[in-house]
Write a protein that binds this DNA or RNA. Structure first.
Lengths: 150, 150
DNA sequence: ACTTTTTATCTCATAGGTGAGAATATGTTA
DNA sequence: TAACATATTCTCACCTATGAGATAAAAAGT
């Protein structure tokens, strides 16, 4: 029986989900070793690499809801890794930025995190990785561009 | 400044997550149109294509906790799409299976679901899809095989 | 100026899922 | 048989994130 385009598309969706889950699990496990959820780690990582960000920027970058951004920054503030700062010109807006503690934490754990992710995707070699990244980028961009209805 | 293997690995992790999220969002939106969460839809789909399954099999296939499997089957039972049935030989175990209603629901909505997923991954053509699927399968298998610690 | 619309964050009720442990059944071993 | 280990589902307390609405500020329109 002939395999249709739809069949191969569904296969792709399945392996995409499995691959993502497997990689995310490594990230989750490492974050958990330091008492952080994946969302919390993602906030720290974003601030670590971009400096300070508006909550709304965090929200869009991490693909969480507005309530979610508030929640994550609250939790990290309570533990002293992040602090809020009022925006100098727009009084609606607030920055989130790493505290010294937060920066030290990331100095300590980020290299290992990166190493583990590199190991997690180590099943494909350098050249394959480049091809895979290109195809996934195109796939993602296309899927994001479609209206979900239709 | 030279891009290291680690850099390309991190790029891959990022686009993998974005691609997966974008595709999953289409699935989520379609399931929601029929009042189903993604987890609920996944249960129906599994039972639709595999016939009846033990709750434990569902749990492993859907990557949810034992509590999660119970919860999902509970909700679908309450709406009459799924029913539990005792296992004939192992009295610890229970099957979940679609009711006639559940089967009719899936007859009605599955083709459209498949069509939407095919559209969502339509950014890459047939040949690319085959390559992508192969690479992702290898990536996922490798990542699943690694102990999360180390 | 005034009104309206948009933008940014926060609050809160709730959905959805986790994971430890209970309850029960089965399999294994002294 | 008794004791123990393992397997399966279910219960329950809890965690994380959502989304609608509140609040407030800024921007745009009249």
């Amino acid at each position: 029986m002939a395999r249709t385009d739809t069949d191969t598309a569904l296969d792709l969706v399945v392996v995409l989900a499995r691959a993502h889950n497997a990689v995310a699990e490594h990230a989750r496990a490492h974050a958990a070793e330091h008492g952080l959820s994946l969302g919390e780690f993602a906030v720290l990582e974003a601030l670590y690499h971009k400096g300070e960000m508006l909550l709304g920027e965090l929200q869009r970058k991490l693909l969480v809801s507005s309530g979610g951004a508030t929640y994550l920054v609250d939790r990290l503030s309570a533990r002293g890794f992040v602090e809020r700062r009022d925006h100098p010109e727009d009084r609606r807006a607030r920055h989130a930025m790493l505290t010294r503690q937060g920066r030290e934490l990331m100095d300590r754990i980020w290299p290992e995190h990166a190493r583990r992710l590199a190991r997690a995707v180590g099943g494909v070699d350098h050249a394959e990785r480049a091809a895979l990244t290109g195809l996934l980028r195109r796939l993602g961009t296309h899927a994001e561009g479609l209206e979900s209805g239709k």
